[in-house]
Design a protein around this nucleic acid. Structure first.
Lengths: 149, 149
DNA sequence: ATCCAATTAGTTGTGCACAATTGAATTGCC
DNA sequence: GGCAATTCAATTGTGCACAACTAATTGGAT
């Protein structure tokens, strides 16, 4: 069942390495939008459905407020989003796109196509990869606090 | 050829997400060794063949001196490695394990097994995943500076 | 011998990630 | 109503990644 231990180590390093490589790809593509990859992910979620709380954004992106708060502050300084406490619950913060934030979506239209062209994988491989990676994430996140025998 | 653009975006997010999940898995396993995952990777390379220059370590791990210099400084403060300029070329820095660094290898023996057990993937899946991820990394790294039409 | 280009490690600055903590607001319980 | 536990965002501190730059060293060319 444990397979070759070395193999899983190699897979983990390949994962770490490929993730950094794709982030680097996004870096060059997103440079003209003046966004980092995590910032772009947050904008994607907001473009899909504007008006989300920090908590909801965090659930989508699997990021906590320690990461999101400064990230959203930077998006706010860029004039792309605005944050406001909810009147009915002053703990929660609503994140909304500004007009500039909405307009940026048009400039980002060709990002997915450029990324897809650079990966060099066909659709079957992408589907299989996505499925496997999803399984890893869910396995690790649901097993995150197990007591080792 | 570009397949579904959205699909590649989903794959990239799955990659980003799975990489963070596995790093988190290593974090809990490596906690008792007092190592981070990148530090553990550097130690793995040194355990495999002691006495490497920063440049060679960087080639193995695909990391530049901006990342490695402070990382190695921390390993040095932990008493696991020592750094020394090469007499025949004062630009280069040789990184060697200390006795404590070599001894740590024994405590790290069961790390790969624990990681492998937690992934929940069988050997075929791990092999396929490793192959696909390698292909992504090499594709992106060899295409890193193309002029888009 | 001198100068110039290349190499190497380190430093600086920015932006994630994440653990741990803080502080405010809300909810639940009595 | 009062109070403890909970929820939520923000803050603090550490450690990557990476771009840009610095400084020292080396090698080559003349």
């Amino acid at each position: 069942m444990p397979d070759s231990p070395t193999l899983s180590q190699q897979v983990c390093f390949a994962l770490y390495s490929a993730s950094r490589a794709t982030t680097g790809l996004y870096r060059s593509v997103l440079k003209e939008l003046n966004l980092t990859y995590p910032q772009y992910l947050a904008m994607l979620v907001l473009w899909d459905g504007d008006g989300l709380e920090v908590r909801e954004l965090g659930r989508e992106l699997q990021l906590d407020s320690g990461t999101l708060s400064p990230l959203l502050k930077r998006l706010e300084h860029l004039g792309l989003v605005e944050r406001s406490r909810l009147p009915e619950d002053e703990r929660r913060v609503l994140v909304r796109l500004t007009p500039a934030g909405r307009e940026l979506q048009a400039k980002a239209v060709d990002v997915p196509g450029r990324i897809a062209a650079a990966t060099g994988l066909d659709q079957d491989e992408l589907l299989a990869l996505r499925e496997t990676l999803h399984r890893i994430s869910t396995t690790l996140q649901t097993t995150e606090s197990e007591t080792p025998s």
